[in-house]
Design a protein around this nucleic acid. Sequence first.
DNA 1: TCGCAAATTGACAGCGCTGTCAATCCTGTC
DNA 2: GACAGGATTGACAGCGCTGTCAATTTGCGA
Lengths: 340, 340
Amino acid sequence: MTATITDVARLAGVSMKTVSRVLNNEPNVTAKTRERVQAAAAELRYRPNLSARGLASSRKFLLALLYDNPSAEYIAAIQAGATEACRKRGFHLVVEPIRVPNGEITTELEVLLQRLPVDGVILTPPLSDMNALKDVFDDVKIPYVPIAPSEETKAKVPSVGMDDITAAEEMTQYLISIGHKDIGFIVGAPDHSASHLRKTGFLSAMKAAGLDVPQNRILQGDFSFESGKACAQKLLAGADRPTAIFASNDDMAAAVLSVAGKKNISVPNDLSVAGFDDTALAGVIWPPLTTIRQPIHDMGSRAARMLINGVTKTTEDIPPLMLEHNIIVRASTAPPARQS
Amino acid sequence: MTATITDVARLAGVSMKTVSRVLNNEPNVTAKTRERVQAAAAELRYRPNLSARGLASSRKFLLALLYDNPSAEYIAAIQAGATEACRKRGFHLVVEPIRVPNGEITTELEVLLQRLPVDGVILTPPLSDMNALKDVFDDVKIPYVPIAPSEETKAKVPSVGMDDITAAEEMTQYLISIGHKDIGFIVGAPDHSASHLRKTGFLSAMKAAGLDVPQNRILQGDFSFESGKACAQKLLAGADRPTAIFASNDDMAAAVLSVAGKKNISVPNDLSVAGFDDTALAGVIWPPLTTIRQPIHDMGSRAARMLINGVTKTTEDIPPLMLEHNIIVRASTAPPARQS
DNA sequence: TCGCAAATTGACAGCGCTGTCAATCCTGTC
DNA sequence: GACAGGATTGACAGCGCTGTCAATTTGCGA
């Protein structure tokens, strides 16, 4: 059998409680005692039993990641960041896909949270902005951190995110700066607040440059490759097409590339394409995508840290809410060959 | 506070133990009693406490997914399958990335497993074949299911996988059938047993067709996009290049596409490219990739079910070990224009 | 109707750990 | 050297649940 606290206590010649104190880094233990206990624990290769801890205290050493995101890459990056942060602090990450279109999501979530013994929950878009969820979390008293929430949500609960408006502005300014005047824009899923913000940034940059954006240059997608394809087909249908297309994420930008490929429209010579997110996909397709590097990995790790610190009461600095982004210029964008 | 078993017992007018029996679907409870207890549980919105269960019994309702795989898509698919299977049965999935190059992986894993209260572990390649791990699992008495292990591992423990050799043979036969005679092959990471099997399948099909495979047509990759790029560069360097390239996974095939794009080699006119896995990427790039659909999602769900059934002793049928695959022909392959 | 085995139910301990609070051990002070 | 007051340590209960085993009820044949 695995060693228990009692074994360690016996070997170290102290009480169980003292062992517990040492293992949890509580104060009021002499250096000498602490050492003795640690030695005993090491000798017995003692590992705390998380179930027992969870039962006796309120700390479960478990975080949950809830998602319903079409982009596997996005979730993978968040997950990687979160697991990394967890690992360093003795926590573990439980992943739970949640289907949003489900009408009973509130009930579903409540059942889940009441069963699953976790110290906190990370929410990814579009879950981040579902206000109905807030009540559920408050009800079961489980803290949560939404990733990339709307301004409205942001005001209510701690969160991590980035400045989508500015990022979209910068990308648009870049396209304008290399000579594009007629730029198509593919909007993301309406239930993701980032979609709206990115569109706002695009429009504001166009306006600032004195460029007109006709209605038919803005198309509604939903972040999926398929939706990007449909939009690209419309955008690239006739001879009157934009010289550049800015898609709200990389998957949709990849779809534009794909449609252009089929139509023998050369990228970037005849058409520039820009994405958003800098997922692994962006560097893997041809031509590689000019896009915006989102600190997705960091968002995951920051969110996990916020939750863990809330639990362990460590005084580790609470990181800033808004993380940095960068424009990554690759081969999918170039000055327009043809003037519109 | 949340209701406990005691509350339910009181309301139903029975003992805690009887409630426990009902909740766990144990036999020897009258239909009447069972109903009464269920009604009481529903009324109180009772949810079992997993920590308490884990402490009192040996069932933790938690499975772990261990991975160290360069392909996010692959893991995402396994994970999706596993979480789905877990959800249906009241289980949850903990994800744990493990860095294989770490010399002390055995110790690391042992610490992890002794801490983490799970009922079973799903292992993905290349972890599937690390024989050193077997001892650790046996030591801590945690069952595990490797996904896509080698023949050798397969003989030792229950596992789920597919027939890599036949699949690679079929793809090769397909390429030959449309007229290719000079086919380049990019091998996967040497520590993945699938790499070896796929290469074997390729060679056997070529041999069966009476086609010669010169040394310089076989290049060693490691499943990463970067390695695929390096191999493609060599394969496509001079005028003497193959008319088709069969890469051992989609990421490397995407890299071939990317190199061909840069060199203005038109796919599929001047070069056919085939991949393996049918990850989301395959349908998203241009041209979409001819590839082999691996039942990755199913593998995840089958593995989870095997583990769960082992625990719950349900008599649900243990699924067959080898799952079906299909060739998916898309636009990246076509008969060769030029004869070699 | 009675007796017995099988089916059903319940009492109770204890899983491994932590919170509470009381006991003990130190300091430094006069 | 005795004592107050704080630092350190320990005894013990109990978190919510299940396993064991004993108590009780039920069904059935004679």
